[in-house]
Nucleic acid binder design. Structure first.
Lengths: 213, 213, 213, 213
DNA sequence: CGGTAAGCGAGACGGTACGTCCCGTCTTCCT
DNA sequence: AGGAAGACGGGACGTACCGTCTCGCTTACCG
C-alpha cells in the first residue's frame, strides 16, 4: 500500500520553518521553477483576490508539481512572503532631499498608491494568511521592521539631528503614527488610502492637535 | 460497464446563475440557537485561534444543525461580525471628563488592553476572514466607522469647540492617527499594543513633530 | 449590514452544464484501497441492510478517503456492481453432468440458497440502487445477461441439441421462466426462495400446464 | 428552545406502522389533502423517476404541510403503497372467458403493457423503497399476494377443475412462473416486457420443455 | 562514460471542511 | 383538532484542497 518504504523524513513542526532531517540541496534547486512559483502566486492573488489562492492552483499555473512547492516552502504563506520580498523593494527606500516633510510626503504617497494598486489584493492576502500562521506573521513583522520601518526611522532620526524634528520624540511611535493610517485603511477601512489622507496625516503629525500658544 | 463514457466534472457554483429563494421567516427564528451560535463562534475563535474555526465546529459546539447557521448568515465571517457587534459595545463608548487628552488616554488604553486580551485572537480571525469575503469586509468597515470612529470623532469635535484642539484639524485623520497604530500592531506588528505606545502616540499627536518655535 | 441583498440559492448541478475532466491514471491505482473499498461495501450492506450503507461509512471502514471512492466509481451503486462481479462468480457457472434436469435443479437450488444467505441483503441493496441510477441498472442488466443468463441458455441449448428439450423452445424465455421466480421472491415476494419452489418450478417447466394427451 | 412544552407523543418504531399514543382522528381527516398527496406522489415518481421523490416535494406539490403526510403515513414508501392500491385495480382482475390460455394471454399482456407505461417508473420506485423499509416490503408483498396472485391462482384453479390444466400442478408455482418473468424484466432485465415475451412464456408453460413422447 | 541519486512533473492518496439537500420532529398560527 | 407553513437538530451528499506519498523522467555529479 501507500506509505511503505522509507518514510518519516520530515517531522511536523507547524509554526516553524523546515524541519526535514535531510533538507533539499539548495544548489540543485531549479531557479526557473522558483520564479514561476512566485510569479504564479502573485498573479493568482491579484486575479482571485486574497484568500482564494490554493497551492494546487499555484502549482498548476507555474507548471510545477505540488511537492516542489512544499519542498522549498513550509506553507503557502511562506511563498507569499517571498513574493513580498521581491515586490516591495521599490517603496522601501526613503528619499532624502534634506526636507524631511517633503520626503515623508513623497514616500507616504508612494505607499498609498501602492495600496491602491493591484498589489493591495496581494498584500491583504498575505496579512490574512499571517493571522492563521505564526511563522508568516513573524516573517511579515520582520520584513516590515527591517525593510520598511527601519529606513523610515533612520530618516526621521537624521531630521531630528538636523533640528527639523523635536529632540524628545519617540521615533518608533512617530513612524507608526505616520504609516499606520495607511495600513488601517488598507485592511479595515471603508475608503482606500490616498494623497488627501497623507496630507491630513502629515498636517496633524507636524503641528499636533494642541492649539498653538 | 460502469464508469465508461466521458468523465465529467461539475462547474463551480459561481459560473452557474443564481436564483433568489424565499428568505426564512425572521419572526420564527430561534433566539436560543442564535445566541448559542454566537457564543460558540466566539469561544472557538479564542480557543483555536484565528483561521481554525470551522462552521461544523461552531454548529457542533452550539448544539445546532449546520443549516441553522447557513439559514441566517451567508458565511462564517458574517457570524463573526455579529459576534463583534455583541462584544465591542464595551470599548466603543468615549468617556467625556472635559479633559480630552485624559479621555483619549483612557480609551486608547482600553483598546490596547482589549487588543492584548483573548479578544485579539477573535478580532484577527475576523479581519483575516474579511480579506476573502467582501461582505464581511464591508460589514467590518461599517461597524468600525459607525460604532468606533464616530464617537471618537465626536469627542474630538467637542474638544475642538472648547478650544482644546486646533480648529483647522481634519478630525477623521486625527482619529485614524491616534487609533491606527493600535490596529497596526495588532495585525502586522511584532509587538502588541500597550500603554507605552499609547503615551508615545499621544505625545506626538498633541505637540507634533515640529520643534517649538 | 451582512445578509442584506437578495437571498440566493445555487441551482442543482444537473441544470449547469458539465465539462469533461482528465480521468485518473488507472495504472497508478492503489489496488489495496480498491479491495478494501469493495470489501467494506459488501460487509456494510450485509450488516446494515440495503439502503443504509453510506459512502462515508464505506470510506471510513475501508480506511480510505471519500475522494478515492469518487475518483474511481461514479456512484455508490457502481461500487456495489463491482462487488457483485467479485461475489457471483460462484453461482454463474452451470454444471453439466449430461442430465439437464439434474443440472438445473443443482444450479437453481444454489441460486435459491444464495438468495437466502447474507448475500440477499446485498443484492437487494444493489437492485434498489439500480432503480435510481440508470448506469447501475444497465450494468446490472449486462452483468446478469452475460454472466448468468448466458451460461444457462448455453446449457439449455446443448440439452436441446441432445434431444432433452423440445427443439422449438425459445430458450431465453425458458431461462427467464426458470429463474425469474427466484428473483421475484427475493424482491417482492413474501416468502424466500427455497428448494420446494425450485422443484415446483421445474415440474411445471418440464411437463407443462396442459394435461397430457 | 425547541422541544420544550409537551412532547414525546410518539414513540419511534421504525419498522412498524404508527405508534403514536394518540392517533389522529380519522374521521376528521381532510380527504382533499389525502388525494392531493397521493396524486402528487404518483406524478413526481413519474416525472423524476424512481428514488428521486422527496417528502418535501410531495408536500409542496400537494400544497400540504409535511406534517400532514407524517400524520397519516409512517414513511414515504407507505404513501407509495397507498398510491399503488389506487392505481392497480385495473389489472388485478382476471378475465374468465372459459379459455384459460386466452385469458392468461389477455391478462399477462395487460400487465406487460402496464410495465411498459409510465406506471413502471412508479412501480420501480416502490420496489426500491421496499428494499430499505420492511413495512413497505411487507405491504407490497401482501398487496401482491391478495390482489394479484390470488385472482390468478383462482383462475388457474378453476381451469384445473375444468381439466384445462394438469391436476397435479402447484398452482402457486405456476402463477409465479407465468408472471415472474414480467417482473424480472421490469426490475433487472435489459429489455422491457412485451407481448412476444408473453407468448414465449405461455408456450413453454403450457407444453413444457420436455420433448413430446 | 555509465551509474546513481537528487530534483522535478504529475497526481493518487487519507483526510477535513465545505455548502446543500433532505429527513423526521417540532412549533406557530389559521380555519 | 386538523392543517399549511416552515424552523429545527441531524446526517449524508459530492466537491475542493490540504499536505504526504509514490511514480517515472531528466540532469548533474562521481567513480
Amino acid at each position: 500500500m501507500l506509505g511503505v518504504g522509507p518514510r518519516v523524513k520530515t517531522i511536523r513542526l507547524a509554526s516553524c520553518y523546515r524541519a526535514s532531517v535531510t533538507p533539499p540541496n539548495a544548489e540543485r534547486r531549479n531557479q526557473h521553477s522558483r520564479r514561476a512559483i512566485l510569479r504564479a502566486a502573485y498573479e493568482l492573488a491579484l486575479e482571485l483576490g486574497p484568500a482564494k489562492v490554493t497551492v494546487e492552483a499555484i502549482a498548476s499555473r507555474a507548471g510545477v508539481g505540488k511537492q516542489t512547492i512544499y519542498r522549498w516552502w513550509p506553507s503557502k504563506g511562506a511563498v507569499f512572503l517571498d513574493v513580498l520580498e521581491e515586490q516591495v523593494g521599490t517603496v522601501s527606500e526613503m528619499p532624502d532631499t534634506g526636507d524631511v516633510v517633503a520626503d515623508l510626503k513623497t514616500q507616504m504617497t508612494a505607499v498609498a498608491e501602492l495600496f491602491n494598486a493591484d498589489f493591495a489584493r496581494f498584500y491583504k492576502a498575505l496579512i490574512a494568511e499571517a493571522q492563521g500562521d505564526a511563522a508568516v506573521a513573524q516573517g511579515l513583522a520582520e520584513q516590515l521592521a527591517e525593510r520598511a520601518e527601519g529606513p523610515r526611522r533612520d530618516r526621521l532620526s537624521k531630521a531630528q539631528q538636523q533640528g527639523q524634528i523635536r529632540a524628545d520624540i519617540d521615533l518608533a511611535a512617530a513612524v507608526e503614527m505616520l504609516y499606520a493610517p495607511l495600513y488601517y485603511r488598507l485592511l479595515v477601512g471603508a475608503a482606500a488610502p490616498d494623497s488627501a489622507q497623507v496630507s491630513a496625516v502629515l498636517d496633524v503629525a507636524l503641528h499636533g492637535l494642541a492649539p498653538s500658544r
